[in-house]
């Protein structure tokens, strides 16, 4: 019927627009092409997502040892990982293009989200060790303040002007600068419209689904794992709908503060890949 043609055309246009909007990911600068943030899994083979839920990829972990990976402890509960391993089964993941199985989860002894001293970290043990991908070394020195970090994940996409919008499960990276290195590592998603030079060319902020993901500090020897994504400060302007917009303060667990625990669980001293 002719009368429906305008509506069908409008529906087609809306569908195309929606698909184009959801073809990107992460919270990025509004004035930079979102495709500039997109990366491939081969760029960071030691970084993997824990679970797929439809098109979404939930939580991230990083290989730090031939038989161990590090993530946020709450990610073991947000995915089927904890339940699977609790019942004696193995949890399958894809790491560096290979299928691997996680058979044990070791949460940090201070993990307790109701506690002010919560440490949101968990070590994941692979059933079998593997030489590939090469584990990422840990940041040992507590000199992270002022360092530029690269963050990686598959979480929600959004613009800094609006906050999180859609989730298409694409992998991307962004950079930011550590502004606080105390109990946690913190960084702020700076608004480039403010006229300062604080905003990096590919500045970005983690979003829902990026928990457990790495904050990497580059060195002459390559990237080091300095932080694990756990959350965002709930400031006065915080709202769930606009999470991650300019001014957001991201919180990462500080790896250099937990080397002793990691060594104790893994059973050897860092660096693990030497």
């Amino acid at each position: 019927m002719n009368v429906n043609r305008p509506y069908l055309s409008l529906l087609a246009l809306l569908t195309i627009a929606l698909l184009s909007l959801t073809s990107h990911a992460i919270i990025v600068r509004h004035d930079v092409l979102s495709t500039d943030y997109e990366i491939s899994r081969t760029d960071y083979p030691a970084v993997f997502f824990l679970e797929r839920q439809g098109s979404r990829k939930i939580c991230v972990a990083t290989v730090i040892h031939p038989q161990w990976a590090l993530t946020a402890a709450h990610c073991t509960e947000e995915t089927m990982l904890e339940e699977t391993v609790q019942t004696g089964r193995r949890f399958g993941v894809s790491v560096g293009g290979e299928n691997r199985e996680i058979d044990a989860v070791i949460k940090h002894p201070l993990y307790d989200q109701e506690s002010s001293s919560d440490v949101d970290l968990a070590l994941l043990r692979f059933r079998k060790p593997s030489a590939t991908p090469r584990p990422l070394p840990l940041q040992q020195k507590p000199n992270e303040l002022g360092a530029v970090v690269t963050i990686v994940g598959w979480g929600y996409f959004g613009l800094g002007t609006l906050g999180r919008q859609y989730d298409d499960g694409r992998m991307r990276k962004a950079t930011n600068r550590i502004t606080t290195a105390q109990r946690y590592l913190r960084f702020v998603f700076d608004d480039p419209r403010n006229g300062s030079d604080e905003s990096l060319p590919l500045e970005g902020s983690p979003s829902l689904g990026d928990s457990g993901g790495p904050a990497l500090i580059d060195s002459e020897l390559g990237p080091h794992l300095a932080g694990i994504a756990v959350g965002q400060i709930q400031g006065a302007d915080y709202s769930e709908e606009t999470q991650g917009r300019y001014g957001a303060v991201a919180i990462y667990e500080r790896i250099s503060s937990h080397i002793d625990w990691i060594e104790e669980v893994v059973g050897s001293e860092v660096p693990f890949d030497s």
Binding site: S116, D118, P206, S207, S211, I233, Q234, Y238
Partner: peptide, 8 residues
């Protein structure tokens, strides 16, 4: 650590 966090 006592600061309210929104888990990602």
């Amino acid at each position: 650590a006592a600061t309210a966090l929104s888990i990602l």
